[in-house]
């Protein structure tokens, strides 16, 4: 009896694996609409694919692992529940990031976490390092250390935009949306200003 059960489970999991391979080939828009149409394997695929980066992303706003974990959990419960009402997207990761950022910031201001006063725990803990070749490099070790120091002294909003632009490679339009700017120009301006950290080290 038990063995039979196991067999059935194995069958299921192998068909699931096949499916997830299919999703690998599909566009974000197609996966998202399959999910919206009620396809549970599309939901699992989205979860498996984005959970780690969502958890890491949430951790940049808040070092409390439990809060981040709960926020990610709530986010997935919410989209699963109201899947048919959600809008379309061709960038699932960005869609989830936007929503998670709102949730984490809201959570910090409410309930138990408010007492912990984590509001300023907006880390975007950044570092500048150099692991490139010894030959032909433009930056000396001394410059790297200076850059590291000055990039760490940037205020949180500037570190945040540096994260979006250089780490996530988001477009100005996406940065405008996720940081709540009213226009793209403001996003551009903030990035230009953030690059001030280079001045002290390179000039």
């Amino acid at each position: 009896m038990n063995e039979e059960l196991q067999l059935v489970e194995e069958k299921n999991s192998s068909s699931l694996r096949l499916l997830s391979q299919d999703y690998q080939q599909m566009s974000d828009a197609a996966i998202w609409s399959a999910f919206k149409a009620g396809n549970e394997s599309a939901f699992i695929f989205i979860y498996q694919k984005f959970f780690d980066s969502l958890f890491e992303f949430g951790g940049l706003f808040c070092r409390n692992e439990n809060l981040v974990k709960d926020a990610v959990q709530e986010l997935f419960i919410e989209i699963r529940k109201s899947r048919s009402k959600l809008g379309g997207t061709n960038n699932i990761k960005f869609y989830l990031y936007k929503s998670l950022k709102r949730r984490v910031l809201k959570e910090q201001k409410s309930g138990f976490y408010k007492l912990l006063d984590l509001k300023n725990d907006y880390s975007f803990s950044v570092q500048f390092s150099h692991e490139q070749l010894l030959i032909d490099r433009q930056l000396s070790q001394e410059m790297v250390e200076k850059l590291n120091k000055s990039i760490q002294q940037l205020p949180p909003r500037k570190r945040e935009i540096i994260y979006y632009f250089y780490y996530e490679n988001l477009s100005y339009q996406e940065i405008k949306e996720i940081m709540g700017f009213s226009n793209v120009k403001s996003a551009r301006n903030l990035l230009y200003n953030a690059l001030d950290f280079l001045k002290s080290s390179l000039l």
């Binding site: 699992i44 958890f55 951790g59 940049l60 974990k69 959990q73 500048f128 490139q132 032909d136």
Partner: peptide
């Protein structure tokens, strides 16, 4: 160009990755 490349690839963030247990636990809860 080389300098700009070195700057872009030198920028890194301290990220905390979840363990597999957390990932499984949250999926179960969901």
């Amino acid at each position: 160009i080389k300098l700009a490349r070195e700057i872009v690839s030198g920028i890194g963030f301290h990220l905390k990755s979840p363990s597999q247990e957390i990932k499984d636990e949250v999926l179960n809860n969901i």
